[in-house]
């Protein structure tokens, strides 16, 4: 299992198992799925104990949207580790710092000589600020209704993707600025968690009066990092996809 890995297009239909094993596996999976379905049907569903508790404590959480309250207050530890998971992938993908004076370079530069199609340039001039505005709105509204850091980060990363696809802007990930932007979310989250420990005596416990504000600070930092990491993943993977093609030409 997992030994004959392929990634060439011509091998797309290859299977790891001989035909009889495929049928046997299919049969086993169907039987197990039916058994699983059966076990779900015969067993009941627990009363929504946590829904009640969350609604009860919502007032003390600093936000009005219960999902945001769970993500950033009741179970904020999960979200902290989730940002750490993103950071792991970001560091793995992050290109090495080059020896030339990278520290001085700007994170996002428009120095490329490509001349943009005027329609595209005009569209970008509208689209990018709009996406950032929408991201900001999603972040802000997360406190009251569906929305929040991840959604906002995804939309803002979309603005970056549009910029990088248009071809004029380049994101330089080996710069110090890029490293700080990527780490900001986790760093601010830990800083707030530890300062909470000093204020209230318990790690990750927000003082009730400042909860809303502190959550917003954490969310803004998380949004910046999530947007940066998603953009990093896109541009780096795209560069790797393009690289061999350029080499062959």
């Amino acid at each position: 299992m997992f030994t004959k890995l392929e990634f060439r297009k011509r091998e797309a239909n290859r299977r790891e198992l001989p035909p009889f094993a495929v049928y046997a596996l299919g049969f086993v999976v169907i039987v197990l799925s039916v058994a699983l379905m059966f076990s779900v049907v015969v067993s009941g569903k627990a009363a929504p104990k946590l829904a009640g508790l969350a609604a009860e404590k919502l007032e003390a959480s600093g936000v009005e949207n219960p999902v945001t309250a769970v993500l950033l207050n009741f179970r904020s530890y999960d979200t902290l580790l989730e940002i750490a998971v993103l950071l792991i992938v970001a560091i793995a993908v992050l290109p090495a710092r080059s020896s030339n004076a990278a520290g001085v370079a700007h994170f996002c530069s428009a120095d490329k000589q490509d001349v943009l199609n005027p329609v595209l340039a005009a569209l970008l001039r509208w689209l990018v600020p709009l996406a950032i505005l929408v991201g900001g709105y999603l972040l802000w509204t997360g406190a009251y209704s569906p929305g929040g850091a991840f959604q906002a980060g995804a939309v803002i990363a979309g603005a970056g993707v549009a910029l990088s696809l248009a071809g004029r802007h380049e994101f330089l990930w080996h710069t110090t600025a890029a490293r700080i932007v990527i780490n900001l979310g986790l760093f601010v989250f830990i800083a707030v968690a530890l300062s909470n420990a000093l204020l209230t005596g318990t790690t990750l416990q927000y003082p009730v009066d400042y909860a809303g504000m502190l959550i917003l600070v954490v969310e803004i930092a998380a949004t910046v990092s999530i947007a940066a990491i998603l953009l990093l993943l896109f541009t780096e993977l795209k560069a790797m996809v393009d690289a061999p093609r350029e080499g062959r030409q």
Binding site: L80, L81, R179, I180, N183, I190, A193, L204
Partner: peptide
């Protein structure tokens, strides 16, 4: 009360290392 530090310390070390490089 040091218990959260078992996770907090390595995370802090990670961000510091990642930022300076």
């Amino acid at each position: 009360s040091l218990l959260p530090l078992t996770v907090g310390l390595p995370l802090l070390a990670a961000t510091v290392c990642a930022m300076t490089s």
